[in-house]
């Protein structure tokens, strides 16, 4: 059987399955995929922790401040993970697609798409963590400049978050709006 034949069979089968079951099934996959975005904050926060440990080792006097900056930066780097969690939990506990009018396969694919969209969070997670690590290192070296460094770090992290925010907006649109179901 050629590829098109297999696709025809799959899509034909999906159309026969109960609409609700199809949406819930795809939501399950979507929720799982959304949480893969956790890779980003994990890598980023790990890097930040490593850099902070290094700078405390080099200059124990600036240790308390370096730790503070690391925690602040890591908390910001967590944002993408929280966005993914929000989307996954909505799909699991409060799925708005189930009660929506429309073709089953489109609604189901919306759930999957919302999950995949959240993968973009990997980027901001790693990037913000890197910024947090470098800031912790800098504060460890020169604790006197803490406030300036923290401000620059927060500003840069906010800009780095932009694409992750766009992904969240698209995921929320797929879940809550009526764009594809008219």
């Amino acid at each position: 059987m050629d590829v098109m034949g297999i696709l025809d069979l799959l899509i034909g089968w999906m159309e026969k399955v109960d609409k609700r079951a199809l949406i819930l099934g795809f939501s399950a996959i979507g929720a799982g995929i959304a949480m893969i975005a956790g890779i980003g904050p994990g890598v980023g926060q790990g890097f930040a922790a490593g850099k902070a440990a290094e700078s405390v080792g080099k200059n124990p006097k600036g240790g308390r401040q370096a730790t503070l900056v690391m925690l602040l930066g890591a908390a910001v780097a967590e944002t993408s993970g929280i966005f993914s969690l929000v989307i996954a939990i909505i799909m699991l506990f409060a799925n708005p697609l189930v009660t929506k009018e429309g073709v089953g396969i489109v609604l189901a694919a919306s759930a999957l798409g919302a999950g995949i969209s959240m993968l973009a969070g990997i980027g901001p997670g790693i990037g913000q963590g890197y910024a947090a690590g470098k800031s912790a290192e800098a504060v460890g070296k020169r604790p006197g400049l803490q406030s300036v460094i923290v401000r620059t770090m927060l500003l840069g992290q906010a800009v780095a978050q932009t694409t992750g925010i766009y992904a969240l907006v698209i995921a929320l649109l797929l879940l809550f709006s009526q764009i594809l179901t008219k």
């Binding site: 929280i82 966005f83 969690l85 929000v86 939990i89 925010i165 969240l168």
Partner: peptide, 13 residues
């Protein structure tokens, strides 16, 4: 969207 997304995320949670 940065402000909106962050606050909406917290509100939903």
């Amino acid at each position: 969207f940065r402000l909106f997304g962050n606050i909406l995320g917290g509100t939903i949670i």
